[in-house]
Nucleic acid binder design. Sequence first.
DNA 1: ATCGCCTATCGTCGTTTCGCGATATGTAAC
DNA 2: GTTACATATCGCGAAACGACGATAGGCGAT
Lengths: 116, 116
Amino acid sequence: MRMGTDTVLMTARDDERLAVLAKALGHPARLKILMLLARTPGCIGGDIVEAVGLAQSTVSEHLRILKAAGVIEGQIDPPRICYALAPGALAPLAALIETLDAAASDTACCVTPDQD
Amino acid sequence: MRMGTDTVLMTARDDERLAVLAKALGHPARLKILMLLARTPGCIGGDIVEAVGLAQSTVSEHLRILKAAGVIEGQIDPPRICYALAPGALAPLAALIETLDAAASDTACCVTPDQD
DNA sequence: ATCGCCTATCGTCGTTTCGCGATATGTAAC
DNA sequence: GTTACATATCGCGAAACGACGATAGGCGAT
């Protein structure tokens, strides 16, 4: 299901799942981690701790949240743990945004006609 | 140089802004409100309260958060207040997701899709 | 087996969020 | 003026979040 034709219609308790996904992105430290993973060619472990500048336990928590949300994947590689972005994990969120943006242009009935 | 708060150094402040945007979507009630606004042809006011099934004060708070994040806009129309989705507000978040998803395919080095 | 490295989990504390009822504000109508 | 309606704001308690230090576990090297 690529197109979000049904995105507006479903709105069941998928809200909950979507919210978890969005909430995973709703923190600067986690965004930083994702950005780091995005620009890292391979996989990284403890380097993340230094990059975000927080305590190791705190970073581990953020990693756990991201993993629980399905945004990242962790694979145990003998020396350390290899973290990488999970492909397609954000697709539902992308579809949501697309739907909302499309509807925004359509429902722009009472928005102030001032354009910047 | 007066240094314009942030330049190309890093996405220090950008992360914050992006996080606020994502956090605005990171709640079931707020998602419900946005879905409702997306589905509504015109603009709605107090109907939102009944739709989400929460107290009027609670809904007002969620609306305030969404408005603060720039996701929705409210225009005072004498009898009530007209709320509508703000066009293009989620564009930065969409760009983020696109970037992450693109990088996910690229950095998928240690993921073993077939094996487990 | 012991050491050192890396990661996960635990316990705690302060802050923030969430939900509510009650109350204040503003405007249209009377 | 008052009344009625719709929204915003104000406490307030309960829950969740974010951060930390300390601790426990797995694995390679010694």
